[in-house]
Amino acid sequence: MNRVFLLPLVVLFLFTAGVLSALFFRLSPGEIIAALGSDETRFALRLSLMTSIAATFLALILGVPTGYVLARTDFPGKAILDTFLDLPLVITPLIAGIGLLFLFGQNMLGARLGEWGIHILFTPWGAVLAQTFVASPIVMRSSRAAFERVGPRYEWAAATLGLRPSQIFFRISLPLARQGIMAGTILGWTRAMGEFGATLMVAGAIRFKTETLPIAVYLNISSGDLGTALSCAWVLMATGFAMLLALRWIGQTPRSETLPSR
């Protein structure tokens, strides 16, 4: 291979390594460790975990059945609907956040929800809402691809054996598609953990209230508290890295099954 191709590789590697070491070596390890133990970092981590897990859960409830329907049915206008459902993937989160802010604001859904005692804007629920919005299409796409890979034939076999549609879904389709769904879940969760733009709009940046890890980084960089900002950044990156590893591991899990040839 031409050696010229190695140059971009080296540049990319140095780029990533440079960014990571800049973040790492800015402060001494002692300062970072001290900041990791601070109340604010711990609050942000806990809130991030709770909101992102809730959002991922919601994304699964919405995304997996939608993916199943799209994988198994054909109807006029499916391509248009399909493209439409992918829009959250390409909308800038900040803009999506403004949309959510208007939709759940007092002029639209907010007033009615408020009557029922449900307050979403500028509460942790706003963060959950924003994260669900960005994570759902990811889970939906992966699930759909996984169901398409498995194909409908195992479901046919199950139907001739007398299983009802719900039994077929939970005992056959879902277990056979689990690998793709898990990969989608991890990607969606990572996206939810790192969600910033939409969260900022919908939940605001309120210390010790809607302060997820990315919001905490933003708040502390703004106020000059580098220690807390960087320690939150490190926690965020560590979870991202762990999830990358988990994805690799899922991808390499040997599959005892062989999918049908047609």
Partner: peptide, 27 residues
Amino acid sequence: PSQRHIGYLFQDLLLFPHMSVKKNLLT
């Protein structure tokens, strides 16, 4: 199909790969 009580041996068999032989029969 689930109510026809007609068995079907498919050309590609379609044994459920995530279940043991016994579980397949149990299904």
